[in-house]
Design a protein around this nucleic acid. Sequence first.
DNA 1: AGAGTGATTCTA
DNA 2: AGAATCACTCTG
Length: 165
Amino acid sequence: MRLVETEAYRGPEDPGSHGYRGMTARTEVMFGPPGRLYVYFTYGMHWCANVVCGPPGVCSAVLLRAGEPTGGIDSMRARRPRITDDRLLAAGPGRLTQAMAIGKPHNGASLLRGSPLWCASDEVTASLREGEVAQTVRVGMSAGRGDELPWRFVIPGHPYASRRR
DNA sequence: AGAGTGATTCTA
DNA sequence: AGAATCACTCTG
């Protein structure tokens, strides 16, 4: 899966972050060491996955918002049988976790090389140049919760990025 | 536009 | 204990 859209979340300085009011049982992983997955359940139905980025004690994570399937696309289609358009397989944080079969068991899992699930640059993402990644406000943020912060990162017009409804 | 769905967190 | 909230998705 090639990531084409992400959002940054921080800690006490970011009212949109689960870590805004300090560490809780749910957000423990976000305050832990970097390179792990923070997975949370929301709206009674959906899982969302983040990559923890900050050093231990610092809350900082990146939400995986959309991806372009590279390998394993048949498995993804099988997991999302109602989807007929491949562009929608992982075009949204809940869709992406469905496509990749990420759920509660993955909370806290390592993403370092050698892990079953790992995270790295590929030739495409590594060659992105300044200006080829746009910054916008984050999705789903209401007023006063950091809705003005330009912490969504997306490849503009990318066919596999999430789209406005 | 509204429903669906349940964990988490806040308030008392 | 109860209420409010919620980094969403799908259907109509």
